[in-house]
Protein backbone atom coordinates (compact mmCIF):
# COMPACT_ATOMS: atom_id res chain seq x y z
CA UNK A 1 0.00 0.00 0.00
CA UNK A 2 1.27 3.40 -0.89
CA UNK A 3 2.04 5.95 1.77
CA UNK A 4 -0.54 8.21 0.14
CA UNK A 5 -3.32 5.69 0.64
CA UNK A 6 -2.27 4.98 4.19
CA UNK A 7 -2.41 8.66 5.11
CA UNK A 8 -5.82 8.95 3.48
CA UNK A 9 -7.17 6.11 5.61
CA UNK A 10 -5.66 7.69 8.72
CA UNK A 11 -7.62 10.86 8.03
CA UNK A 12 -10.75 8.92 7.18
CA UNK A 13 -10.56 7.02 10.46
CA UNK A 14 -9.99 10.25 12.40
CA UNK A 15 -13.03 11.86 10.78
CA UNK A 16 -15.38 8.92 11.18
CA UNK A 17 -14.21 7.99 14.67
CA UNK A 18 -14.54 11.55 15.93
CA UNK A 19 -17.93 11.93 14.24
CA UNK A 20 -19.11 8.75 15.94
CA UNK A 21 -18.06 10.17 19.32
CA UNK A 22 -19.96 13.41 18.53
CA UNK A 23 -23.11 11.44 17.86
CA UNK A 24 -22.89 8.84 20.60
CA UNK A 25 -21.29 10.73 23.47
CA UNK A 26 -23.61 11.67 26.29
CA UNK A 27 -21.31 14.39 27.53
CA UNK A 28 -21.67 17.57 25.54
CA UNK A 29 -18.14 18.83 26.24
CA UNK A 30 -16.66 15.58 25.02
CA UNK A 31 -18.84 15.78 21.92
CA UNK A 32 -17.64 19.32 21.25
CA UNK A 33 -14.00 18.27 21.51
CA UNK A 34 -14.60 15.31 19.22
CA UNK A 35 -16.14 17.72 16.71
CA UNK A 36 -12.78 19.46 16.60
CA UNK A 37 -11.10 16.28 15.42
CA UNK A 38 -13.85 15.53 12.93
CA UNK A 39 -13.34 18.94 11.34
CA UNK A 40 -9.60 18.38 11.36
CA UNK A 41 -9.96 15.07 9.56
CA UNK A 42 -12.15 16.71 6.91
CA UNK A 43 -9.46 19.37 6.43
CA UNK A 44 -6.95 16.58 5.78
CA UNK A 45 -9.23 15.09 3.13
CA UNK A 46 -9.51 18.48 1.44
CA UNK A 47 -5.71 18.52 1.19
CA UNK A 48 -5.87 15.18 -0.58
CA UNK A 49 -8.31 16.69 -3.04
CA UNK A 50 -5.73 19.40 -3.78
CA UNK A 51 -8.15 21.97 -2.43
CA UNK A 52 -5.55 23.86 -0.47
CA UNK A 53 -7.55 27.01 0.11
CA UNK A 54 -10.62 25.13 1.34
CA UNK A 55 -8.44 23.02 3.62
CA UNK A 56 -6.88 26.10 5.22
CA UNK A 57 -10.30 27.73 5.53
CA UNK A 58 -11.61 24.60 7.17
CA UNK A 59 -8.76 24.68 9.68
CA UNK A 60 -9.07 28.39 10.42
CA UNK A 61 -12.83 28.73 10.55
CA UNK A 62 -14.20 25.37 11.60
CA UNK A 63 -11.39 23.94 13.71
CA UNK A 64 -10.13 27.26 15.03
CA UNK A 65 -13.28 29.33 15.17
CA UNK A 66 -16.50 27.41 15.27
CA UNK A 67 -15.43 24.62 17.58
CA UNK A 68 -13.97 27.11 20.04
CA UNK A 69 -17.21 29.07 19.90
CA UNK A 70 -19.20 25.91 20.51
CA UNK A 71 -16.99 25.10 23.50
CA UNK A 72 -17.39 28.61 24.86
CA UNK A 73 -21.11 28.38 24.39
CA UNK A 74 -21.20 25.10 26.26
CA UNK A 75 -19.03 26.35 29.09
CA UNK A 76 -20.83 29.67 29.52
CA UNK A 77 -24.15 27.93 29.84
CA UNK A 78 -22.43 25.99 32.60
CA UNK A 79 -25.58 24.64 34.13
CA UNK A 80 -25.64 22.14 31.33
CA UNK A 81 -22.07 20.91 31.56
CA UNK A 82 -22.75 18.43 34.30
CA UNK A 83 -26.23 17.53 33.11
CA UNK A 84 -26.52 14.59 30.76
CA UNK A 85 -28.50 15.69 27.74
CA UNK A 86 -31.48 13.57 26.96
CA UNK A 87 -30.19 11.26 24.27
CA UNK A 88 -32.77 8.54 24.35
CA UNK A 89 -33.52 6.61 21.21
CA UNK A 90 -37.07 6.17 20.07
CA UNK A 91 -38.58 4.35 17.13
CA UNK A 92 -35.40 2.30 16.82
CA UNK A 93 -36.71 -0.30 14.39
CA UNK A 94 -38.20 2.07 11.75
CA UNK A 95 -35.14 4.28 12.02
CA UNK A 96 -32.78 1.34 11.52
CA UNK A 97 -34.75 0.11 8.50
CA UNK A 98 -34.95 3.56 6.92
CA UNK A 99 -31.33 4.54 7.49
CA UNK A 100 -29.94 1.20 6.39
CA UNK A 101 -32.06 1.32 3.24
CA UNK A 102 -30.79 4.82 2.53
CA UNK A 103 -27.20 3.89 3.31
CA UNK A 104 -27.46 0.77 1.15
CA UNK A 105 -28.86 2.76 -1.76
CA UNK A 106 -26.18 5.41 -1.52
CA UNK A 107 -23.33 2.93 -1.19
CA UNK A 108 -24.77 1.00 -4.12
CA UNK A 109 -24.80 4.15 -6.19
CA UNK A 110 -21.24 4.98 -5.32
CA UNK A 111 -20.05 1.55 -6.42
CA UNK A 112 -22.07 1.28 -9.58
CA UNK A 113 -21.98 4.75 -11.12
CA UNK A 114 -19.40 5.99 -13.61
CA UNK A 115 -18.76 9.37 -12.09
CA UNK A 116 -17.84 12.15 -14.41
CA UNK A 117 -14.10 12.72 -14.18
CA UNK A 118 -12.07 15.32 -15.98
CA UNK A 119 -8.62 14.46 -17.23
CA UNK A 120 -7.56 18.10 -17.26
CA UNK A 121 -4.48 18.81 -15.18
CA UNK A 122 -4.87 21.53 -12.58
CA UNK A 123 -4.29 24.98 -13.99
CA UNK A 124 -2.07 26.13 -11.17
CA UNK A 125 -0.55 24.73 -8.03
CA UNK A 126 -2.62 26.81 -5.69
CA UNK A 127 -6.34 27.33 -5.94
CA UNK A 128 -6.69 30.53 -3.92
CA UNK A 129 -6.27 33.00 -6.77
CA UNK A 130 -8.52 31.03 -9.13
CA UNK A 131 -11.18 30.83 -6.43
CA UNK A 132 -10.89 34.54 -5.81
CA UNK A 133 -11.41 35.34 -9.47
CA UNK A 134 -14.42 33.04 -9.63
CA UNK A 135 -15.97 34.49 -6.49
CA UNK A 136 -15.71 38.03 -7.72
CA UNK A 137 -16.45 37.13 -11.34
CA UNK A 138 -19.08 34.62 -12.45
CA UNK A 139 -20.05 33.69 -8.89
CA UNK A 140 -20.32 37.17 -7.45
CA UNK A 141 -24.06 36.79 -6.86
CA UNK A 142 -23.88 33.68 -4.64
CA UNK A 143 -20.99 35.32 -2.83
CA UNK A 144 -23.09 38.37 -2.04
CA UNK A 145 -26.23 36.38 -1.25
CA UNK A 146 -24.23 34.31 1.22
CA UNK A 147 -23.42 37.52 3.07
CA UNK A 148 -27.14 38.25 3.22
CA UNK A 149 -27.79 34.75 4.60
CA UNK A 150 -25.19 35.32 7.31
CA UNK A 151 -26.64 38.73 8.10
CA UNK A 152 -30.10 37.25 8.58
CA UNK A 153 -28.64 34.52 10.78
CA UNK A 154 -26.88 37.15 12.88
CA UNK A 155 -29.98 39.33 13.28
CA UNK A 156 -32.03 36.26 14.08
CA UNK A 157 -29.58 34.97 16.67
CA UNK A 158 -29.53 38.37 18.37
CA UNK A 159 -33.31 38.54 18.30
CA UNK A 160 -33.77 35.06 19.76
CA UNK A 161 -31.09 35.49 22.41
CA UNK A 162 -31.93 39.01 23.58
CA UNK A 163 -33.32 39.22 27.08
CA UNK A 164 -36.81 40.66 27.17
CA UNK A 165 -37.75 43.23 29.75
CA UNK A 166 -40.54 41.95 31.89
CA UNK A 167 -43.68 43.87 30.98
CA UNK A 168 -44.36 46.14 33.94
Amino acid sequence: MELYTIIFYVFAVITLGAAAIVVFSRNIVRAAFALLFAFFGVAGIYVFLLADFIAVTQLLIYVGGITVLVLFGVMLTNRQVSVDIKTGTMQTLPAVILTSALAGTLIGIFWSTDWRVTAQPLASETTASALGELLLGPYVLPFEVASMVLMVALVGAAMVARREKKPS
Partner: peptide, 24 residues
Protein backbone atom coordinates in the same frame (compact mmCIF):
# COMPACT_ATOMS: atom_id res chain seq x y z
CA UNK B 1 -28.73 24.66 -8.20
CA UNK B 2 -26.33 26.82 -6.21
CA UNK B 3 -28.75 29.77 -6.35
CA UNK B 4 -31.62 27.43 -5.60
CA UNK B 5 -30.00 26.29 -2.37
CA UNK B 6 -28.94 29.79 -1.34
CA UNK B 7 -32.41 31.21 -1.97
CA UNK B 8 -33.96 28.38 -0.01
CA UNK B 9 -31.59 28.83 2.89
CA UNK B 10 -32.25 32.57 3.05
CA UNK B 11 -36.01 31.99 3.03
CA UNK B 12 -35.81 29.19 5.56
CA UNK B 13 -33.51 31.00 7.99
CA UNK B 14 -35.76 34.05 8.04
CA UNK B 15 -38.86 31.94 8.49
CA UNK B 16 -37.37 29.91 11.36
CA UNK B 17 -36.79 33.12 13.26
CA UNK B 18 -40.14 34.64 12.37
CA UNK B 19 -42.00 31.45 13.33
CA UNK B 20 -40.58 31.88 16.83
CA UNK B 21 -41.21 35.60 16.90
CA UNK B 22 -43.64 35.63 19.80
CA UNK B 23 -41.10 33.86 21.96
CA UNK B 24 -43.10 34.40 25.13
Amino acid sequence: MLMMVLGMELTSLSSYILAGFTKE
